[in-house]
Amino acid sequence: MDALNPTMPPAAVEPPPLPPRVWKFWGTALWGLFIFGAMFVGQVAVIVYCVLLQGGPLSVEGITHVVADGLTISLSVLAGLPMVLLALWVAIRTTRIPFADYLGLRWTSSKNIIIGIVAMAVLIGGWDMVSRAAGREVLPGFMGDVLKSAQADGALWLLVIAFAGAAPVWEELFARGWLYRGWSESRLGPYGAILLSALVWTLMHLQYDWFFLCEVLSIGLLFGYLRYRTGSTWLTIVLHGLNNLAATIQTWWLTG
C-alpha cells in the first residue's frame, strides 16, 4: 500500500534513453547545405575583411582582385576549417553518436595507407600522361598564379598549410565523413553514396575546367571506395593532403 501513502510517493520511472540515429538521405543533404553554408560564410568573411583592409571597394571588381591573391586564398581556406568543424558538431550532436565515430575518424593499418598511396599515384599518373598526350598543362594555370602571389607576399608557408592541411581535413570530413556516412545508410547504399559524395565534392572545385573536373571526380571515387573498404576517413584525409602537397611542390617546380 506504499503507492497510496502520500508520504511515500512511488519512485519515478525514468524513460529509456533515445537510441542513436544516423541522418539518412534528406537529413544528410539538408544538414550538408548548412555545413557548406557555414564554410562559405567563414571564407567570405575573410575575403571581405581583406578587401576592406586593402582599402578597395566592396564590389565585384574589388572582391575579384583580392580573391586572386595567394595570401587571401590561404586565409579563406584556413577559415573554412573551424566553421565546418562547428557546423558538423551541431549536426552530429542531435544523433547521440560520438563525433569521431559518426565521421569515421578511426586510424587504419599501414598496409591500407600504402595501398591508398599506390592507387592514388597510379590514378594521377595516368591523368598526367593523358594530359601531356593531349598537349594540355599538367596542372591548372591558376595554381601557378596563386603560388607566385603567395610567394611574393612571403606567405608560401601559409599556402602549403592551407592547401595540404586545412583543405583536406574539412573537405574530407564533409564529403567522405558526413555525406558518405548518411547516404551510405540510406537507400543509396555504399556505392551510391560513393558516387554522389564524389559528385558533390567535384562541384566544390568549379574553378577547374572540364578536364581537371573529371580528374577530381575520379579521385573522389577512389577516396570514397577506400573510405568504404577501410571505414577510415583519416586515410582519405592523409591521401588528400599528400596529393595537394605534391601538386603544390610540382607547381612550384614547374613555375621556377
Rank of each mutant, 00 (worst) to 15 (best):
M1I: 03
M1L: 07
D2Y: 08
D2W: 10
E14R: 12
P19N: 01
V22D: 06
F34K: 06
F40R: 14
G42R: 08
L53V: 00
Q54T: 05
L58S: 02
E61L: 09
A68R: 15
L71G: 09
T72N: 11
S74L: 03
L78F: 08
L78A: 14
T94G: 08
T94M: 12
A100G: 11
Y102G: 12
R106M: 07
W107N: 07
S110V: 12
I114Y: 04
G116N: 09
I117W: 02
A119Y: 01
G125Y: 09
G126M: 04
W127L: 10
A133F: 10
D145A: 05
V146Q: 03
A152M: 09
D153W: 11
A164F: 01
A164I: 02
A164P: 10
A166C: 09
A167K: 10
R181A: 13
S186V: 08
G189W: 05
S197E: 14
L199H: 01
V200N: 03
L206W: 12
L206Q: 12
F211L: 11
L217F: 15
G220I: 05
L221C: 05
T230I: 10
G231T: 05
V238L: 15
L239Q: 07
G241K: 08
L242V: 11
T248A: 14
I249H: 03
Q250N: 13
T251P: 08
W252A: 14
T255D: 09
